[in-house]
Design a protein around this nucleic acid. Structure first.
Lengths: 201, 201
DNA sequence: TGTTGCATGTAAAGAGTTACATGATTAC
DNA sequence: GTAATCATGTAACTCTTTACATGCAACA
């Protein structure tokens, strides 16, 4: 209920936040940001705090969540916790089952640089790829750690599968960088043998 | 020259468009969109026409490109073609060499769905992954085809390397989907043997 | 005393998309 | 005739981030 028309027009990020609540827990905006950083982040980027708060407002307006203030015994500022409603559960289930799946979007900063290899020194290309290997390995390790802390919770079975996917994804990213380092070496050797082609760089 | 302060603040998309021009060709906005679809798209999404036109305006204002109108002999509407200036070449080289590399950003629609597996039927998960496999394979084939049409052009050596990277990347995406299909089967079997855990779904 | 973590939110700006408008040419 | 391709651009809108504001508690 509440605003029926907004149902179809919610952006994917709203559904992601509602999805986080669909596991049944009562969470604050702050909690949601943390959960998001440990799950969504590996395959769907993590929204900023401010966006999470505005998504929560939108979801509540749509009747998909309800909230209440909780006084903190320890003395810190009171917090507002959110819970998914029946209408929200119905809506997110319907979205998950019926909405068209958005194609994956990749904005790969390191590749954008290497694509402009004619403007770089070979050493700079190696550095970009080396840093990317480290980044990918770090992400892989975080995915492993987060998957471990969720294991054996039946409710988290599918999130755990996506973390497993992420672990393999970042392992592949790391290996793809290594393969490209080899390709760059091969290209540099070929150019050294036949240096007539130096039209650019 | 022109607005020195805008140099550092240009968004990555501006640099991507300027990068497209850094290979030396004189191109129209329409051409740039096509080039973008055959290269950037595989690792950095392709901006819309309207954004390309506004980026070109911004780049010209910054003094990084110059343009001229060209009358079409065949009778179609006149077009405006853009060329990179010396200042633009200097700026894009400096950006490529010195600006911090943005970390890769992934928004993986199919994984967002599967992460909400508790809201889906197993059949729907298989369908999402099956479609994703097809998507990945199509992207891989496009990357192969585009790499082939650029081969042996020494100026396109690095773009060709990134297309090679893309070919492997999409092959990996395809294989990762297959691995996840197996994981889902294994999970379904485990649940069938021990159906006590049906707390959700 | 200063930093980190918890906790929530507003305001402003920028990035990027979709829809729309226009109009000629070519191929079916 | 009508669909597709070439070709450029504006307007409105949405998404998303950054910077800022506020304030307590624990810890070093």
């Amino acid at each position: 209920m509440a605003d029926e028309t907004s149902k179809r027009t919610l952006p994917a990020t709203s559904w992601a936040v509602l999805g986080l609540l669909s596991f049944g827990e009562e969470l604050s905006g702050y909690d949601l940001k943390k959960w998001s950083d440990r799950s969504l982040r590996f395959f769907y980027w993590s929204p900023s705090f401010s966006q999470i708060y505005s998504e929560l407002k939108r979801l509540e307006k749509a009747g998909y969540t309800s909230s209440r203030m909780v006084a903190q015994e320890t003395g810190t500022r009171d917090k507002r916790v959110y819970r998914i409603t029946d209408a929200g559960m119905t809506a997110v289930r319907e979205w998950a089952r019926e909405a068209p799946v958005d194609p994956p979007v990749l904005k790969h900063g390191p590749m954008l640089r290497l694509w402009l290899g004619h403007l770089l020194e070979p050493e700079q290309m190696r550095e970009v790829l080396g840093r990317h290997q480290e980044f990918a390995e770090q992400m892989r390790l975080h995915a492993v750690a987060d998957a471990q802390s969720a294991q054996d919770e039946p409710a988290w079975a599918y999130p755990t599968l996506t973390l497993k996917w992420a672990e393999r994804y970042y392992a592949s990213e790391r290996d793809l960088a290594a393969a490209m380092l080899d390709d760059i070496e091969a290209l540099a050797r070929a150019r050294a043998e036949r240096p007539a082609d130096e039209t650019l760089n």
